[in-house]
Structures are given as C-alpha cells and as structure tokens.
Simulated assay, not measured.
Amino acid sequence: MMTVLIWIATALAIAGALYSAERLIAWRKRSEFGQREKTSKKVGDPRLAAEERDQFIEILGELAPGKDEEVHEKVTRQVSVGIVHVLATFKNTIVTVTDEKGAVLGWSSAGKLGIKGGKKSKAFTAKLVSQDACKQAMAYELKEVSLKVKGQGPGREAAVQAVSDIGFEVTSVEDVTEAPRKESSEAKVAQ
C-alpha cells in the first residue's frame, strides 16, 4: 500500500513539473513576440510574475530570454534657494523643504522616523525630523533657505536650529502662525 502512495506522489510531482515547463515555453513565446507577461494572477502585481519566472528558472536551470536590465541614473535638478516649512504642533512636528515655486524637495515627520506617542512632540524629535528633511533636500544641492515656522509646539526652536546646524545658510525666519480668532469668544459672550 505504501509503495502505491509513493508511486502516485512521484507521478503527481512529474506532472506538475511538466505543466510548469509548458507554461515556461508559452511564456517564452509571448516574450519573443513582444507581448506582455500574463503570468501574474493579480493585475498590476509585478512580484507575482517575478516569483513565477524564478520558479521556471529553477526547474529548467537557465535564464529566461529577454532584454538585459539597464540601470538608469536618476537625473535631479539643481536648486540653490529653497524654503523650509516647519509645522510644530503640540502632538507632532512636520518639516517640508520646497523650492521657491513650492515643489517639494524633501519632507519628514516624527511618524516617518518611527517615533510614536508622546515622544513625537519633543524638541529632540523635532531636531531629528529637521535633519532628515534637510538631508533629502541636499540631493538637490540646496545652499540657502528661508524658514517659515507655523505652530506653537515645543519643537519649534529646535527645528530652526537644526536647519542652520546642518549647513544651510538661513536668510530669513518668518512666523506664519495664525492668530486665534476673537469671533468665537465674542459669540460666547453675546449669548
């Protein structure tokens, strides 16, 4: 009885390998004619197609035909003057570095760095967030920045200090915090 089970398992394994080989041959024919790979079961998930291609390579022991992958360098523009926007709230600190037109060059927040809970509003965290955003902007060869600070959080001064410590020339610091409106308190008094 045991030998019959082993014989059936072996037959199933061989049938599976033959089916996979047939799929590889069909894949090769499609790729030779320039058609798109259709081995992925989920639309738009390239990882599934890559996994199946790797299985075929394991079975046949050879590389799949196709174009050699070319590595393209990312072309970045050079920006000499930028704006650092610091949003310092009592819960979080967010720093965004933009060019003069407003295109984002780099950004960071405490959550992006993996800091959770009450530590997100600390001054040291604001310093780390500022450094991370500025390091991203350094790829654009940014030299001088103007700062726009918004909010009353504890990370306000630390973020501003970190921008100047990292090597940017700070041309101006502007406070863009909105003043609290008196309309709501006047409405409460009138009632």
Rank of each mutant, 00 (worst) to 15 (best):
I115P: 05
K150Y: 02
E183D: 13
K148C: 04
V75A: 10
T98H: 12
A17N: 09
L105C: 07
N92L: 07
E73N: 12
R181P: 02
G82S: 06
V189G: 03
L60A: 08
A162L: 04
L18A: 15
V173P: 00
K29W: 05
L87Y: 12
E73I: 11
I14Q: 09
P65L: 10
K119I: 01
E52N: 02
K135M: 10
E62K: 12
E73G: 10
K120D: 00
V189T: 05
I115L: 06
R181M: 07
V145T: 03
L87H: 15
W27P: 01
R53I: 01
A137L: 06
T39R: 15
I83C: 04
Q161F: 06
K112W: 02
G66T: 05
K91H: 15
T96A: 08
L63Q: 14
A187N: 13
F124L: 11
G111P: 02
M138F: 14
E183Q: 11
M1T: 07
D68S: 12
E22S: 13
K42I: 01
G34D: 01
A64R: 12
D99L: 08
A110M: 05
S109G: 13
G16P: 04
G66L: 05
R28K: 13
T10Y: 15
A103H: 12
Q131F: 08
D54C: 02
G167Y: 03
K101H: 12
A49S: 14
K67H: 12
L113D: 09
N92K: 06
A103Q: 11
M2G: 15
S172E: 10
I57K: 14
A21N: 01
S108C: 13
A179V: 04
A162E: 06
G66M: 05
M1G: 14
A133G: 06
S109Q: 05
R53M: 04
G16W: 13
V79H: 12
F124P: 00
V129L: 07
F168I: 00
V160R: 11
K122C: 02
S108G: 14
Y140E: 02
L63G: 06
